[in-house]
Computed example of a mutant assay.
Amino acid sequence: MELARQLKAKREERGLSQDEVSKAIFVSRQTISNWENDKTYPDVQSLLLLSQLFEISIDELVRGDVVAMQQAIAEDALRMKLLSIGMLAFSGLAFLFLLVFSLAWPEPSGFARMSKGNLAGAATFIVLYAIGFAMAIAVDRLKKKHDVVTYREIDRFLKSGVVGEPDAEGLARKHPALGVVVKLFAGAAIGLLLAGLLLTLEG
């Protein structure tokens, strides 16, 4: 990305160290180093502060990267959409098979209060839900790999001139593990509620 070269050049023109720049825009020195080495990309708020510090517009800072960002958004959008659909489909099938097996095979299994249908449904649920969960992780990794959320925010800002409010995607970018954990516990909670309901109905 062109921005990495631009940031280093602008900083050196003003005789600033990475530490001085980091303090001026309220990020860590390592963050500045990551930007200058093209490991990560600054969000819109950071770009605003950088543009003020270096007295240059955001458009000039990212001009050379706009096409690459738009290509990354377009290429990743379809893959993320397909993975998201797959995640929802497998998660839905997991709950469906749990319900169908439990209702269609009520014969006692001898294990706790669970029927053979409960056990078969639970086994199927685990396999299908694991596939769906793997797809959710793949989406999060794809976002992180190409910094898609940041690119979208920048593209939106360049077109509208408005800095968007922090949203779920922005939170997921700053805390990538959080999205995965939330999905895991949400799915597990729904599964437990459904299993409890089935046991209650059969009892």
Rank of each mutant, 00 (worst) to 15 (best):
E165V: 05
D43W: 06
T200L: 08
F185G: 02
E107D: 10
F157R: 02
I85D: 10
S22L: 07
G121P: 04
K116A: 03
D155H: 07
V149F: 01
N118H: 11
K81I: 06
S33M: 10
R141M: 09
L96T: 00
A188N: 13
L61D: 00
T150E: 03
G161A: 11
E165P: 00
N118P: 12
G170W: 14
L119H: 07
L193P: 04
A130Q: 12
A186F: 06
Q70C: 03
K144A: 15
K183W: 15
E165Y: 02
V21E: 07
N34E: 14
Q6G: 03
L49P: 03
K10L: 11
D65T: 06
P108L: 11
Q30H: 07
T200V: 04
V182W: 10
A4Q: 07
D140L: 09
V66A: 08
F26Y: 06
G64R: 01
E169H: 14
E2C: 11
S160Y: 00
L3C: 09
K8Y: 00
S22G: 08
G179Y: 04
M87P: 06
A77L: 05
R152N: 12
V67S: 11
K116I: 08
G110A: 15
A195Y: 15
L99I: 02
Q30Y: 01
P106K: 12
R113C: 14
S84P: 00
L178C: 05
A123D: 14
L184G: 12
D65S: 03
V149S: 05
L16Q: 12
F157C: 00
P166Y: 08
F185R: 01
T40F: 06
S102T: 12
K183Y: 13
Q70V: 04
A189W: 09
L47R: 00
V148Y: 04
H175I: 08
K145D: 10
G196N: 05
L61Q: 01
F111Q: 07
A189F: 15
S46G: 13
V100I: 12
I25W: 06
D19G: 00
L184P: 03
L16M: 15
V44W: 00
L50F: 09
E107K: 11
Y41S: 10
M87V: 07
V67L: 09
K145E: 15
A172M: 10
L158F: 02
K39A: 03
